[in-house]
């Protein structure tokens, strides 16, 4: 790979209700396999993707949440969660599956501006 680009995945949807969260995760894993600089942003309902304790047997759907814990193996270590999105949903960092960096809306916006590629989910 000649040039490393900064890829940001913006995740704004809850898991299971729509296919966005799973699609995003799959593209993240593919992108990471090509040694790019990948960061993931979780805001609005996207923060629900990282909620611990997901049990999907009852809805007969694959529980893909354990894969977020494998992102470290893929060298995807930049996970950002928006503070107010988390608070509005009654969640704290302890509710999340992985360790993340908590940022404000303004900081998220600034981070978005630094990217070469922004993928929206």
């Amino acid at each position: 790979m000649s040039e490393v680009k900064k890829f940001m995945f913006v995740n704004r949807k809850a898991p299971y209700g729509t296919i966005y969260a799973l699609e995003s995760l799959e593209v993240v894993l593919i992108t990471a396999a090509f040694d790019q600089d990948v960061s993931l942003m979780f805001l609005d309902d996207g923060v629900y993707q990282l909620k611990k304790g997901q049990q999907t047997k009852g809805i007969e759907t694959k529980n893909f949440s354990p894969a977020y814990r494998a992102l470290e193996d893929y060298d995807v270590e930049k996970l950002y969660v928006e503070k107010e999105s988390m608070q509005a949903r009654g969640l704290t960092e302890e509710d999340l599956l992985v360790s993340v960096t908590v940022l404000s809306r303004a900081e998220m916006g600034a981070l978005m501006d630094e990217q070469d590629v922004v993928l929206s989910y």
């Binding site: 894993l29 396999a33 893909f64 894969a67 814990r69 494998a70 193996d73 893929y74």
Partner: peptide
């Protein structure tokens, strides 16, 4: 079993 994904070759090698 742990992560619900089959790892990419690079990840498999490292792990």
């Amino acid at each position: 079993e742990e992560y619900q994904i089959a790892p990419a070759v690079r990840v498999l090698t490292k792990s």
